[in-house]
């Protein structure tokens, strides 16, 4: 009896060890390539919002834990610099009230507080309706480029149905409303710069 248990235990042990060996060996050999892929994707995303920066933007990224969109969250901030001068910030933040859960956004804001653009990093909105916030489905989200807290005025920073200036998609209002609100609120936060920008 004891012998049988020991034998089974040994068998499990051997298989576990060999499995771990193979998995960790694969992880070891692919790790570098995976990290490279992740960085390339991030660089591509950032480049859609801001070009001609000359700093190592990924290395200079920092996090701030703040309350934004009604929740306490970790906000990732990428400072874009030219000749050592910061001219824009790319802010990665989460808006929790999409149609179907939270929407992760990357918002580019130049130091004069105008939007360089908004991009969706991750979302779970309805395919075919709410997913028109992706650039590969529609150009809708590109309309935010150049806007600021005063352009349009505060009353107009809403979708048309709520009396604002932003077109919503047919059949989906909640998703565009979420993006509009999130963009406005991140601009508001940026307006109180001391909160967002790390002191040197």
């Amino acid at each position: 009896m004891i012998k049988a248990i020991l034998k089974s235990g040994m068998l499990l042990l051997v298989f576990t060890m060999v499995s771990i060996l193979f998995v960790s060996w694969t992880q070891d050999t692919t790790q570098e390539k995976i990290q490279y892929n992740e960085e390339q994707l991030l660089i591509k995303r950032l480049a859609e919002l801001v070009s001609n920066y000359d700093n190592d933007i990924l290395k200079e990224k920092y996090d701030q834990v703040l309350t934004l969109h009604g929740i306490k969250q970790t906000i990732g901030i990428y400072p874009a610099k030219r000749n050592g001068q910061t001219f824009a910030y790319l802010v990665e933040h989460t808006y929790p009230n999409g149609y179907n859960g939270s929407i992760r956004l990357l918002t580019g804001i130049s130091v004069d507080e105008t939007l360089l653009g908004v991009r969706v990093v991750a979302h779970k909105e309805t395919p075919g309706l709410g997913d028109k916030i992706e650039t590969r489905k529609s150009d809708w989200i590109k309309q935010f480029t150049g806007l600021s807290l005063s352009n349009p005025t505060q009353d107009n920073w809403k979708v048309k149905r709520d009396g604002g200036v932003f077109e919503a998609f047919t059949g989906a209002t909640i998703t565009p409303r979420a993006i509009v609100t999130a963009s406005y609120q991140v601009l508001e936060l940026f307006n109180k710069k001391s909160l967002l920008i790390k002191a040197k």
Partner: peptide
Amino acid sequence: TIVELLMQS
């Protein structure tokens, strides 16, 4: 897990 890692890379 191995497939996932390979796919990722």
